[in-house]
Design a protein around this nucleic acid. Structure first.
Lengths: 186, 186
DNA sequence: GTCTATAATTCGATAGAC
DNA sequence: GTCTATCGAATTATAGAC
């Protein structure tokens, strides 16, 4: 194995351990030492690859902002599609749970969370909102419901929120999101 | 001024500084030293009065769980009443914002947040839900929307969520809460 | 590329003088 | 009741050997 390939696997191991630790413990309590121990390497390697703790978090919380083609979908089902999409992203890996735990006490995390919802909801809202100037407020309403459910279900783990099935969550939240995006302003 | 009265004012000053720091910085970054400095006293006084950092947070996040008499209210307006009530509690002081920032990384904070929503929503949901066994799930749905808006508006400070007026927030969220509590299960 | 050793802070917590 | 002084542990980060 060449050194280049070895560095790639080391880097990947660090990122995987970092995502788990940030998701489980938040920014402050996810220490570089613990992450390095999980990855089976020396703490100084983390510094070498990512510079400092902020750089490590930035790399571990990177996410592709591409929303699977939604433009062609009927706007009547946009609520269910969006709820399913965000639940998929939250359950796929630890990135969004980690970002949610971190963004509460870390400015970089908060800015990234905001950027994610702007990138994912911006184009959609412009397509279905009755009035374009209302789009940011409607996107914020959608984000509030998605974030609140993610907080209750994946971070705080409120028993009733955890015990609800995936389909139940979608059935309850989809009409809410649908109304926030398409209903007349109250 | 007797020593007893002086200790009361010192204790109150510590609690006020602690609430501000926990609300602004979260649990780990709200240091006893910083809280003592804000309160104008010595860090060792915090330990004397509250034992340790956990005891300080427990005291600073105490909250009375009494919901202003809602039993007599018409169930048609329960959504608007609840949204207004929680917004009141969040804007009155820093306690709930601090608890929200802390509960993401602190077990005691998470348990207290859950207890607050159980105590505030439990009696209400039992009174208006179609099926009693659905009450916990419906309360969790309400909590998810309230928590998500509080997170967006008071913690992450998403610009569109901050710029919405109080009345707009109530007008958008009240029908959601109303539906979670009283509508037929989807 | 990887690790040892350690610097430089900062934290929670304690002991004891006044 | 209040403060000074300090302990012991933990953290991020750096310098340098191999």
């Amino acid at each position: 194995m060449t050194t280049a390939r070895r560095s790639d696997t080391t880097r990947a191991a660090i990122l995987e351990a970092a995502r788990e630790r940030f998701a489980a413990d938040g920014y402050e309590r996810a220490t570089i030492r613990a992450i390095a121990r999980d990855a089976g390497i020396d703490p100084s390697m983390v510094m070498r690859y990512f510079g400092n703790k902020e750089g490590l978090f930035a790399a571990a919380s990177e996410i592709d902002l591409a929303l699977p083609a939604l433009g062609a979908l009927p706007s009547r089902h946009i609520g269910a599609v969006l709820v399913n999409h965000f639940l998929d992203r939250w359950e796929r890996d630890d990135v969004l749970t980690g970002l949610l735990r971190v963004c509460v006490t870390n400015e970089i995390g908060a800015a990234r969370m905001q950027a994610i919802f702007e990138a994912q909801l911006g184009p959609v809202t412009l397509g279905v909102c009755p009035e374009p100037e209302e789009a940011p407020a409607r996107a914020a309403l959608v984000a509030s419901q998605i974030l609140g459910m993610a907080l209750s279900r994946y971070v705080l783990r409120f028993p009733p929120a955890v015990e609800m099935s995936r389909d139940e969550v979608v059935a309850w939240l989809a009409p809410t999101v649908q109304r926030y995006l398409t209903a007349e302003a109250p």
